[in-house]
Design a protein around this nucleic acid. Structure first.
Lengths: 231, 231
DNA sequence: TTCACGTATTGATATAAGTCAATAAAGAAA
DNA sequence: TTTCTTTATTGACTTATATCAATACGTGAA
């Protein structure tokens, strides 16, 4: 499962965290020295909720799902991780535990950097600290609005929102191969898998999307956005 | 509404943000120089969603509700603000806008400190930056678990949770005067006001709480916790 | 190919929770 | 005090959504 092969250094890496740009060459080398790399197959768990958050994770390639294991064995998917984003979770500065799990959706190559090292860099470099503050803030804001949407929108609106999220944030296209099962789409949109199936059927019948099972194509984006907004 | 009376300095203040302890005397003076104070009556708005987040707010005394104005004029209450906590919101480092409103629940005395000043202090003092990271992280984690609870628990569980939250985090007692109307309790617990009334009645009938209208007394804490957990 | 297993789909049904409308109670103002 | 206004309560009803059960589909292993 884990394959320690340090091919590239952080300096040459194009998939790194934006905030690494705030580091000096020496600081970046320091991070790089404390980095190791591992590959995962679809379904494999990269981070497990409850374990010590001793490392930050960055995906070099592939996608992974971020989810909380909640009450009664129900899962809540928080979002989808992709390269160039820190995966650390808000536990880092609170109790040094992961508060969610991360599992590969595709083949994934990931870098692990010791959390102590990143925390040390926060001390040394205030630009880096500020960058991290910005990063956490963006994510917190995202969670906030997702919370609002789950609390106040009905199922149709939430699923429309999810389809748009996948198009805009994950695939950068209105025409994509669905990474997620109906079950997982439900976990991401806060509904039962059967509800996902039923609503997708309605969207298809109304020619708002085309759904050739693993392929999704958004046909009427405005209409989908309207459903997302008012639903 | 606003009364510019700078009575005490940050240095002598006992109600300040924990993170101010990380500042040197000189830095604290710098913050203090850029501070102003204002008083609010119950119902008055301290911060309005959508406005520029040019100032951080700290309550010196009193309580306020933090809420998002969502879709369809529905409100979602995020929590209750009390002294010793930063009220700034995750917008600070993203788009410099407030993403929620804050309104006084009681008489409130509040300090405003220019956000630019706090950001400047982040640059100067990495301990302070780290303290802020910790602060944001704690809040994000809180939001996370509230999100989970709203998504996965049923109404009884959510209301039980809210009653315990008010006892533990706000009043430090199982016997307290309810700050919130039924409507507001609903906004905080994610349900209609009528549902709040009905469930409170059930809790009363089951002798889990005593509800002499503005006064709430938790009689069977274990039972309430069980409902909160399994509900 | 056939089998086995997970996933998707569909329909029937149960349950949770919101909405509406009427009334009661509690405060605030005159 | 009386009146006015807001908030709380209650019951009847509607709607959203989950659950359960049966069946179909799809894919990899043998």
């Amino acid at each position: 499962m884990m394959d320690i092969n340090t091919k590239v250094s952080c300096k040459e890496c194009n998939h790194g965290w934006e905030n690494f740009k705030n580091l000096t060459e020496e600081e970046l080398n320091y991070a790089n020295k404390n980095r190791f790399q591992a590959d995962f197959k679809p379904g494999e768990i990269i981070l497990k909720q409850g374990t010590p958050s001793s490392n930050a994770v960055f995906l070099i390639s592939g996608m992974a799902k971020i989810y909380i294991e909640g009450y009664d064995n129900k899962r809540m998917m928080v979002g989808i991780a992709k390269p160039r984003r820190l995966i650390a979770g808000p536990g880092t500065y609170v109790d040094e535990r992961h508060h969610y799990s991360v599992a590969a959706l595709t083949d994934v190559s990931a870098c692990f950097i010791k959390m102590d090292v990143l925390k040390e860099l926060v001390h040394r470099n205030s630009k880096f600290a500020e960058g991290w503050l910005r990063d956490i803030s963006e994510k917190a804001l995202g969670t906030f609005y997702k919370f609002l949407s789950h609390t106040q929108k009905k199922m149709h609106g939430r699923l429309a929102e999810t389809l748009i999220y996948l198009a805009d944030e994950i695939h950068n296209s209105d025409d994509y191969t669905m990474l997620l099962s109906r079950q997982e789409l439900g976990e991401l949109s806060g509904m039962a898998k059967e509800s996902v199936v039923r609503i997708l059927k309605v969207f298809s019948e109304d020619k708002i999307i085309e759904d050739k099972c693993p392929h999704i194509k958004i046909l009427k984006r405005e209409k989908l956005q309207m459903i997302s907004k008012n639903g």
